[in-house]
């Protein structure tokens, strides 16, 4: 019988992934990278949902994961479309340059 991987490992991985996502979101300037960082955070959360679901023998965690994935997919579709339009209009993907809504 193979010993199970401890729960804490999954959670630590999730936390590391989340932290990487946050760092990417905060410090990168490229919109695509920022977008990928957000996806990374979502997936980090998904991982912890699945982990808890496995730990508590509950199906709710899986359900949430699916919800998150659906939302993330929708978001990716809309988001990428917006990014594409921004790039077409502005020829830049630097997030600090896209501030015309302010002021």
């Amino acid at each position: 019988m193979m010993t199970a991987v401890p729960i804490s490992w999954f959670l630590t991985l999730s936390a590391i992934l989340f932290a990487l996502g946050v760092a990417g979101f905060l410090f990168r300037r490229n919109i695509i990278t920022v977008f990928m960082s957000i996806e990374l955070m979502l997936n980090a959360v998904n991982l912890s949902f699945v982990t808890f679901s496995y730990q508590h023998k509950e199906v709710a965690g899986h359900l949430f994961t699916f919800f998150v994935m659906v939302v993330a997919a929708a978001e990716a579709a809309v988001g990428l479309a917006i990014i594409l339009t921004v790039f077409k209009n502005r020829s830049t993907l630097n997030i600090d340059d896209v501030n015309s809504m302010k002021n």
Partner: peptide, 9 residues
Amino acid sequence: SGSIRSYAS
């Protein structure tokens, strides 16, 4: 500030 990243921070 209006900057999402500062809110996130």
